[in-house]
Design a protein around this nucleic acid. Structure first.
Lengths: 196, 196
DNA sequence: GTCTATAATGGGATAGAC
DNA sequence: GTCTATCCCATTATAGAC
C-alpha cells in the first residue's frame, strides 16, 4: 500500500507540471482548479504550493519553458550555413515535427496568452516574436538571393507559421498519413507559397 | 436621469450578446462571470436570465449564430457557376473580409469549443465541417479540371483556412496595409499553394 | 513535503417584490 | 423586465500539525 504522506519532491514537481499542462490544454486555464490538478497528481491542493507560488506562475512557467524549448531546438537544427531553400525546408519539417509532439504545450501557449499578467505576456510574446524572426530572416535572405519571390517577408513568415501550426488541429499519430508524408505535403505548399 | 427599472427587452437582449461576446473573447468563457456581463450591460446579474437559460447556452448561441452567418454569407457570395480559379479567389477574399470584421466571434468560436457540452460541440463542429467542405469542393473541382494541382483536397482546404484565419492575429484596420492589399497578398499565396 | 482545516472571496442560478 | 437578496457551492491561498 502506497503511503500518502512523506517526501516526493523529485517526482511530484514534474507531475504537477504535466498534469497542469494537460488539464489547461483540455479545459482551459480558468476552468481548471488547483484541486483538479492536485487530484491528477495524487496530492491535496495545498501541497501544490510547494512547487509554484501561485496558479499564474504555474501557467507562465509552462509557456515560457515551451517557447524556450522551441527556440533552442530550432537553433540546434537550423542549417545556418546552407542556402535559404534548404533552410526553409528544414524549418517547415522542424516546426511540424516539434509541434505535433507537444500539442498540449502549443495549444496552451497560444490559447492562454490572454490569461497572463501583462509582464508575463510581454515575456512570452517576445519569445514568439524571436521565433518568427528566424523564419523571416530566411525568407528575406532567399528573396535577396533571388531564390524566393516574397513581397512581405514578415507577413509571409506569420502566414507560414499559421499554416504549419494548423497541422495540430487535425493530425493524429494513428491516422492515414505518416508524419513524414505530412511534412512533405506541407513543404510542397510552403515551397510554392514563396515562389521557390 | 435614466430609470433603472422597467422593460427594455428589445435593447437589452442584443446588449447581453454583444457584451458576452466581447468579454468571452477578451478573457475567455470560464474567466467571465455573469456578474461581469451584467455590469457591462448595465443590469443586475439576475436580469440576464430573462435572455438565456444559462451561461452555456449563451456561449453556444453566440457560436452557432456566428457559424450560421458565415455559411449563409459565403453561400450568398459564392460565384457557383464560375471556374474554380475565380471561386477560389472569391473564397479567399470573402474569408479574410468576413473574419476580420468579426474578430471576436471568430476567436470565441475557435477558442471556446472545449467549453461546449458534447451536444453543442457536435453541432458547432458540424457547421465548421460544412464550411470546410465548401472550400474542399472548389479544390476538388479545380483539380479534376486540371486548373489546380492538389494532392490532398481535404488537408489543403484545412491548410488554406488556417492560413487565412491567421490574418486575424495581426491585421489592424489602422495598419499600414488596406484590407484589399491584404486580400491580394493572401490570394497570391493561396494561388501559388494550389499550383494555379 | 504533505496533510487537514479554514479564511476570504466569488461563482451560477433562483425567489419574490415591484 | 428588473431589482434585491439569497442559496449553495467552488475557488485560491494560507496556517499549523505531523
Amino acid at each position: 500500500m502506497a503511503r500518502t504522506q512523506g517526501s516526493h519532491s523529485q517526482f511530484t514537481g514534474p507531475k504537477v507540471r504535466d498534469a497542469a499542462l494537460r488539464l489547461f490544454a483540455q479545459h482551459g486555464f480558468a476552468a481548471v482548479s488547483m484541486r483538479q490538478i492536485a487530484a491528477e497528481v495524487g496530492v491535496q491542493a495545498g501541497a501544490l504550493y510547494n512547487y509554484t507560488p501561485d496558479k499564474q506562475t504555474l501557467l507562465f512557467d509552462l509557456m515560457q519553458e515551451h517557447m524556450d524549448d522551441l527556440l533552442a531546438a530550432w537553433c540546434a537544427e537550423d542549417p545556418g550555413g546552407a542556402d535559404p531553400f534548404t533552410r526553409l525546408e528544414a524549418f517547415t519539417r522542424f516546426h511540424i515535427r516539434f509541434n505535433t509532439k507537444r500539442a498540449d504545450a502549443v495549444f496552451v501557449s497560444y490559447m492562454e496568452l490572454r490569461n497572463l499578467t501583462p509582464d508575463n505576456f510581454e515575456t512570452v510574446t517576445a519569445l514568439r516574436g524571436a521565433y518568427e524572426t528566424r523564419l523571416q530572416d530566411i525568407l528575406t535572405a532567399g528573396t535577396t538571393q533571388g531564390v524566393f519571390t516574397v513581397a512581405e517577408p514578415r507577413i509571409t513568415a506569420m502566414a507560414v507559421i499559421a499554416l504549419l501550426t494548423g497541422v495540430n488541429t487535425w493530425y493524429r499519430e494513428e491516422g492515414r498519413l505518416t508524419l513524414d508524408e505530412v511534412e512533405t505535403l506541407y513543404w510542397n505548399m510552403v515551397r510554392r507559397m514563396v515562389g521557390g
